[in-house]
Design a protein around this nucleic acid. Structure first.
Lengths: 135, 135
DNA sequence: TCCAATCGGAACGAATCGGTCCGATTGGAA
DNA sequence: TTCCAATCGGACCGATTCGTTCCGATTGGA
């Protein structure tokens, strides 16, 4: 029931990125420097965030990253999902069934949907803009 | 951002236990049978739940477990914390500081408290009684 | 045409998770 | 009173995932 370190780092980096002018090209190097995240790890994260559609990337000299959407349109849930995969409390919440032996007779499962929804909602209610704002 | 399998199992087992008469002695064997959780794993979980104060345990022949509190007084958060430890989204939320290099200048941390509170609240709002209830 | 800068994916080590086994303790039966 | 069976409790082990590091592919400028 805790965020992975990678997801944590990703949130911090996105918040740092949101504090830059929207049209600035940000290299993994710069953001790693600003946030204190180790460079190689930062690179990996930026890549993952880009392939999830949260960042636009440009290769080559003078390349870098840029927020794909306004900070107010990006939620904490988006960032977490980009790094950790879908937010699903248990295996049986996801599409993939047949992973739990008691799937059929489980009397707890129906309630878990509600719980999952609540947790996800809590993360979706926080926008990147607010995270980037004042301390 | 997902429950560990152990925590998942623990919830199912506690729900099964809550469906028994409150004064019944429940062995790990019985609950393992009812829930489909592998016996050795069930034993480990029962022990952990007992040492967390959610179950009373009695050794010896005819021993077993019993809910330490009424099912309505046990929340999902209690069970998860008993198995996984404190619910804290990130390391910096817990008492233990000095684990994050950017602790001092982190502008995201203040917001995380609110998020953590929301998530925890979502889990605390679900009682064991409701989980044990109708499907 | 070459070079430097940057992204992207592949490989490695470590820590935690999940599962299994065996010893310690207790109550009941002979 | 003695023995035995049942049950909890903690120690050990393998496996999966997490986190990190490194190297190759691609692009723009000199």
């Amino acid at each position: 029931m805790r965020l992975s370190s990678l997801a944590d780092y990703a949130v911090v980096m996105m918040a740092a990125a949101a504090r830059h002018p929207v049209d600035a090209r940000l290299s993994a190097n710069i953001l790693a420097d600003e946030t204190g995240v180790p460079l190689p790890t930062a690179q990996k994260l930026m890549g993952r965030l880009a392939s999830a559609g949260l960042l636009n990337s440009a290769r080559g000299t003078g390349g870098g990253f840029r927020l794909a959407r306004p900070a107010s349109d990006v939620s904490l849930a988006d960032i977490v999902e980009a790094v950790e995969g879908p937010i699903a409390m248990t295996n049986c919440i996801e599409g993939a069934h047949h992973l739990c032996a008691i799937e059929g007779s489980c009397r707890v499962k129906p309630h878990l949907h509600a719980v999952n929804f609540a947790v996800r909602g809590a993360l979706q209610g926080v926008s990147l803009a607010s995270l980037a704002g004042a301390a």
